[in-house]
Nucleic acid binder design. Structure first.
Lengths: 228, 228
DNA sequence: AAATCAAAAATTGTCGACAATCTAACTTGA
DNA sequence: TCAAGTTAGATTGTCGACAATTTTTGATTT
């Protein structure tokens, strides 16, 4: 019972791929564990064909690693890979912010300011508890990425990279992060975009993501210590 | 007879994926054409199982697009997608150059200067003919990417993005490009890296790629005009 | 008791066949 | 003649079974 709501996809393979992705990101299938094809096929009630296609997709997403004649394993999160991934994110989302600053229309800017106000209100009402922006339309970063207007960039970030990024976010209790600080940074980025200052928007987005990665690093060092 | 040399992979699926990638990049399978599973399976002498897995991989590489119950088609190159892809490349290779400037050792720097001298000598001997650096160890860009030391970035650029990039390079007769100019730019980038000037290295790499994309754009407009 | 080798079990890779869906040709009616 | 509906063909999606490889188990030797 990994997923309560299962949206029927056009094909079993896609369906399984989504369910597996979700199961791995949420930790229902633990890090480093082996993916047994017969076991999972039975569990999801499908044959090994579509399941294997799903696994190939997950390999493309970087969620599992495969070895010929041996099988697939869920990746193991570690600090170095996280830093490497976030460095890529810096480059890509920094570029997205730059592009957004060039092309974004006034009404979209207003809509994003409204979103930040909403986040602000949430923090005021809920004692600074983290606002869960689980990839929906309320995620500031996703909004910026889409505003870039670069279809390739959007696909890469949202469909290929974000699964792993969410995994890192979820698996480390980042109580260390300061939501109000993040919100201030979001606002500064949006200000730069509103003023069409591409250089500044990129710089601020990079700094923002770099900060986040440093916090995550500390959190991971902490949990690594605790689990030891 | 798409490939003269076929290196035996551990699994048929991998083998087919490589052969298909090569066939698409080199244009043996034309742009926009439909991928017929029965036909290709017969052609490569395998069953549809491994072939389908290969197609799923190619979809991850962005070489084909798939629609449920309809099948896969080879992507069609167009200017907008090219510009979008090269913008991503700017961001990522720019970052790679920055990282290389930080970490690269003196002997690797020397080795790269030697490579550029070799390119120079080639141009002198061959009337400025384009040096074919087909992804091997002689490709300046690949060397910089690897020098970044960022495993995720290396994988993304070399294993996932470069197939499409090579496709763009190959399908447009870029006689317009000036090899000596490119070489000068490479040298400037390497100078910045040698001096550990990350900011400058990133800036120059971005400019270099941006220039290349503009030249490609002009070439594509030209060929589009010619084919009309 | 530890290490090496051999046999058995399990898992992955591949295949051919059937079911579901789409595409194209044909018929029918206005 | 054209449009819509229907049927035939082809293609994709899925399944179960077999072959190839790996992993585990157990026996044998030092």
């Amino acid at each position: 019972m990994t997923n309560l709501i299962s949206i029927k996809s056009a094909t079993l393979s896609e369906d399984i791929a989504q369910q597996l992705t979700s199961a791995i990101v949420q930790g229902h299938i633990p890090q480093g564990s082996k993916i047994s094809e017969p076991e999972l096929a039975k569990q999801y009630g499908v044959s090994r064909g579509p399941l294997r296609e799903a696994i190939v997709k997950l390999e493309g997403l970087g969620l599992v690693t495969r070895t010929a004649n041996v099988g697939a394993r869920v990746i193991e999160l570690n600090i170095q890979d996280m830093l490497d991934t976030f460095t890529m994110r810096e480059a890509l989302e920094g570029m997205a912010a730059r592009l957004a600053a060039i092309t974004m229309h006034a009404n979209e800017v207003r809509s994003l300011y409204a979103l930040l106000d909403k986040h602000q209100a949430y923090l005021d009402d809920n004692q600074d508890e983290h606002y869960v922006q689980q990839g929906g339309n309320d995620d500031f970063h996703l909004r910026i990425i889409h505003a870039s207007g670069n279809a390739k960039l959007i696909r890469l970030l949202t469909e290929e990279l974000y699964a792993v990024i969410r995994m890192y976010r979820r698996h480390t209790a980042d109580q260390r992060s300061d939501p109000r600080q993040a919100l201030r940074e979001h606002r500064a980025i949006l200000d730069a975009i509103a003023n069409h200052e591409g250089d500044l928007a990129e710089l601020l987005m990079r700094r923002h993501i770099s900060r986040a990665s440093q916090l995550l690093k500390q959190a991971m060092e902490q949990t690594a210590l605790a689990s030891h």
